[in-house]
Computed example of a mutant assay.
Amino acid sequence: MHWAAMGLLVQGGLSPLLSTAIGAFTGAVSNYFLQFYWAFNGKGVHGSSMPVYAFTVILGGLLNAGLFHLLTALIHVGIVPAQIFSTAAVAVMNFVIYKRIVFHERII
C-alpha cells in the first residue's frame, strides 16, 4: 500500500518526500488488521494493541522520512533505491516491535 500510494502521488506531481510520508500512513492504516489477525495471530485486545501500534507507526514514519530525506537530498541516491533501503529498515524495526510488544499475546 505504501509503495502504491507513493507511486501514484509522485506520478501526480507531489514531492517524493511528502509522497512517501502519505504512503507510509496509508500502508499503516491498511496493515493493522492484516498484522493483528494474519501475521501475528493476535489474541489480545485491540484497545491495548492500537495505541502501541500507533506509536510504532509514528516512529516508523519518522524513520522512513528521515532515511529517505538523508538518502535523496543529502547523499543524492535515487528515489527507488532510497525507498527500498528505507522500507527495509522500517520493516525490520516494525517486525521486532510488533512481535515483542504490539501483538504479543496478552489479554488485558
Rank of each mutant, 00 (worst) to 15 (best):
M6H: 08
G42E: 01
F103T: 07
A28F: 04
M6Y: 07
G23V: 02
V90K: 09
F85T: 14
T20N: 15
W3F: 15
N41K: 15
T72K: 01
T26I: 13
I97L: 15
I58M: 13
L18R: 10
P81T: 01
V10C: 11
Y98G: 02
V57H: 06
L17D: 10
V29L: 10
P81M: 02
Y53F: 15
R106Q: 11
S15Y: 01
H46S: 10
S86D: 08
Y32A: 04
F33I: 02
I75P: 00
H104C: 03
R106Y: 08
A89T: 11
L9I: 08
I75F: 10
V45S: 14
F85D: 03
G66Q: 05
N41S: 14
L63K: 01
F85A: 15
A21N: 06
V57D: 05
G7Q: 08
S30V: 14
L59Q: 05
I107H: 12
S86F: 00
F68Q: 04
H2D: 08
Q11G: 14
F103I: 09
G27V: 02
T87N: 13
H76P: 00
L17C: 04
F95P: 01
F33H: 07
S15E: 14
I108Y: 05
M50D: 01
M93L: 15
F55L: 15
A39N: 13
S19P: 07
L14R: 12
V102K: 03
G23C: 05
V57F: 06
Y32H: 05
V102F: 01
I22G: 02
A4V: 15
T20A: 10
G78D: 13
N94S: 15
V92T: 14
F85I: 15
I75T: 05
